[in-house]
Simulated scan of single mutants.
Amino acid sequence: MTRAEVSRRRVTAAWLGAGVAALTGCAAAAGPPRRLRLATGPEGGPYNAFGKALARAVAASGARLEIVPVSTSASVDNLRKLADGTVELALAMADVAEDAVLGREPFASPVAVTALARTYVNYTHLLVPADGPVRSVADLSGRPVAAGAAGSGVRVVAGRVLRAAGLGPGPTAVREWPLGLGASVTALREGSVDALFWSGGVPTAALAGAAREVPLRFLALDGYVGALREAFGPVYTAVTLPAAAYGLTEPVGTIGVGNYLLARDGVPVDSVRELLTVVFDRWRDLLRDVTAGARLEPRFAISTGSLPLHPGAVAYYRSVYG
């Protein structure tokens, strides 16, 4: 049994009694819906799409909740907003969430945050022009690269891949451009950058569109999974971009990173249970515009690494498992 599994069992045992007791005394009461702000991502991005779909699903469910999506720069920005109380809920990549709870860079100190669910897996994409000279990560040395917007999880995983490839600060470093997805695609089309990093579902619509218009090569990244796991733990896994997703001639191995739905400690237990009921009832709608072929099941959703489950999440999963 791993350390995380031992920790999770202890957390579940410790919180279950409190969570069930709180639920008993927090039955749905008359009054206005409880308003919860959800930090998502930039307009047009997958987190933003997930957040809006969740808000619609909750509104249609009859739950005593109102979910208010908040546009952000994504993962790092979202964790900071949770920490300062700007929002009550957030979406974030697993590696960034682990950094937050452990107080690792880019966070100056540990962030108190709890997990509600592991929702789906991001696939790390590294795209270059098919007719260009770049055939591997090492070939990016000294070149301009769209490495994700400031405050995004893309920026974190891109930087770690580049450092693992020996392209960190120094004479071999790439020139990292802090661009969001739309601006990154434009820059790659125009030749302003020689490569584009992205972390998201498969297929990502903006990349699928670009691949139909411009010949692109997707570079393999699975060879860096071992180094990333050694440095940052099992949040990184080896996954495969299927050939059918982008019209590739063959599958491409890459790096997978989970996504978490997170909450501040103070979000009421009954609100979390209501929210998760909607999430698992409507998961197909939530993931439709985010990633194809993914499923959301409680037995996988509890895999949140070092992040403790919120007491309301513990109570919800306990009710599901019986």
Rank of each mutant, 00 (worst) to 15 (best):
P169G: 02
L79S: 04
G209P: 00
S109T: 05
A210E: 08
V156S: 04
L126E: 04
A195P: 11
D139F: 13
D99F: 10
T172R: 15
P129I: 08
V154S: 14
P133S: 03
V134M: 01
L167G: 06
D99Q: 03
Y120L: 08
R118D: 13
S109Y: 03
V185P: 00
R118Q: 14
N122G: 14
K81I: 04
D84V: 03
T186A: 14
D194N: 09
G159K: 15
T119G: 01
V134N: 05
L116K: 06
R104P: 00
G191T: 06
A92W: 00
A90H: 00
T114L: 11
Y120K: 01
L91D: 00
A150Y: 07
V96C: 09
V96H: 04
A150N: 12
V87H: 02
A205R: 14
A165N: 10
S136A: 10
L140G: 08
P144G: 08
V174Q: 13
V156R: 07
V174A: 13
E98M: 04
G209E: 03
G200W: 00
D77G: 01
L91R: 00
V154Q: 11
L126K: 05
A206T: 07
E176M: 15
R160S: 09
G209V: 05
A90Y: 00
D131P: 11
R118N: 11
V156L: 12
S109Q: 10
T119C: 05
G132L: 07
A165M: 12
E190Y: 08
A210K: 05
Y123R: 10
R155G: 12
R80P: 04
E176T: 13
V185W: 05
T119E: 03
A183T: 14
A100W: 02
M93G: 12
G159V: 07
Y123C: 13
L91F: 00
L82Q: 02
S152T: 07
V161C: 12
S192R: 13
P171C: 06
R104Y: 02
A115Y: 02
A210G: 02
P144Q: 10
E190S: 07
G209L: 05
E176F: 14
L179M: 15
D77C: 03
A112S: 06
L167M: 08
M93P: 01
P110E: 02
G180D: 15
V137G: 15
E88M: 07
F197E: 07
R163P: 05
E88Q: 08
A94F: 01
W177F: 14
A92G: 00
W198E: 13
L116H: 05
E176Q: 15
P169S: 12
L196Q: 07
L162R: 13
G142T: 06
E98A: 07
W198S: 13
V113R: 02
R135M: 05
P178W: 10
